[in-house]
């Protein structure tokens, strides 16, 4: 059985990617199970979807603990522990990541035993239409090696039925492009062994003790604890305030920020709390002198790294 996990952000089309991959396997005569993993998270937040495919009925269910292939749409998710990108990754797990960095860098950085492949991030991946999902599906289809180009194309057409022709065409182009690009590595993903009982680690079950209702009811005995949640990790675009052009109006961006992530200091200068800014860019839209602009998050990270190096 193939166990494939696809990691991305809400809005990047991971559910569609898993469905394309599932349908393509199904076209090839596999039994399939695919599902997105929803949470309370929103656009930009880490999400994942998964696909199981086998030549026998699939009895396993739920999230994939030991993936044979992990596909990452967004490299900025890797360091986010909540995203769980490398969870359960073993010596034979193949990793495909959209990144400008070399596979060897990722292999070393993540101490991976399995093969790593990268695909470049295209500028249109930040666009409204999440083409990166198509890229994930196409790449995964090729790495598995069991899916023909026709089956992939058919799966994309069936999953995107009802969308505009040019959208379907763009998705096809991206998916087939990724598929073709990885041709030399076709079939490098191996099916996980069917698990026997074998030696297994028995679960560390415990007897749950009685605890006072003050502790054991779902109550929060403190205010404002949500600041511990770094929703800044949802951000793909970073707003930057150009203080030279800022009029020091002292309220517009700060008032309209839905997350209250902009405070104005005593001198009247606004400051963005990047731990919690989700990158909605309302501030960019409302600033009267257009003193706020946005740059891609990884570009910001590069700039910061360069600054540190200097």
């Amino acid at each position: 059985m193939y166990c494939i996990r696809l990691h991305g952000r809400g809005g990047q089309g991971m559910k569609t990617a898993s469905r394309i991959l599932g349908s393509a396997f199904f076209e090839e005569g596999f039994e399939v199970q695919d599902a997105p993993r929803y949470g309370a998270e929103r656009r930009g937040a880490p999400i994942f979807a998964y696909v199981r495919a086998a030549r026998r009925p699939i009895l396993e269910r739920g999230i994939i603990r030991r993936p044979d292939l992990v596909v990452v749409a967004d490299e900025t998710l890797v360091p986010v522990s909540a995203a769980g990108v490398v969870q359960g990754v073993g010596p034979y797990t193949v990793l495909l990541i959209h990144s400008a960095e070399a596979p060897a860098v990722w292999k070393r950085r993540l101490k991976l035993g399995g093969e790593v492949f990268t695909l470049p991030v295209a500028p249109e991946d930040r666009a409204d239409v999440p083409l990166i999902g198509a890229s994930c599906a196409g790449a995964a289809a090729r790495l598995v090696g069991e899916i023909s180009r026709d089956a992939l194309e058919e799966a994309i057409r069936s999953e995107l039925v009802g969308m505009r022709a040019e959208v379907v065409a763009e998705n096809l182009e991206r998916a087939l492009g990724a598929y073709d690009r990885l041709a030399p590595h076709a079939g490098c993903v191996r099916e996980g062994d069917a698990e026997g009982v074998g030696p297994f680690e028995s679960p560390d079950w415990i007897d749950l003790p009685f605890e006072d209702a003050r502790i054991s009811a779902p109550d929060i005995h403190a205010g404002g604890t949500s600041v511990q949640v770094r929703t800044g990790l949802w951000r793909t675009m970073r707003p930057l305030i150009d203080l030279e052009h800022c009029h020091r109006c002292a309220w517009v961006c700060s008032t309209f920020c839905p997350d209250g992530a902009i405070r104005v200091d005593d001198a009247g200068a606004p400051q963005i709390d990047y731990d919690h800014c989700k990158g909605c860019l309302v501030c960019v839209a409302v600033c009267p002198p257009h003193a706020i602009h946005a740059i891609p998050e990884e570009q910001a990270a590069d700039a910061a790294a360069a600054e540190n190096a200097a």
Binding site: R19, G22, F26, E31, V32, Q33, D34, A35, P36, Y38, I58, R61, G62
Partner: peptide
């Protein structure tokens, strides 16, 4: 819910 409701199978 989820394990069947949102999971595709043949």
């Amino acid at each position: 819910g989820f394990y069947l409701s949102f999971t595709r199978e043949p």
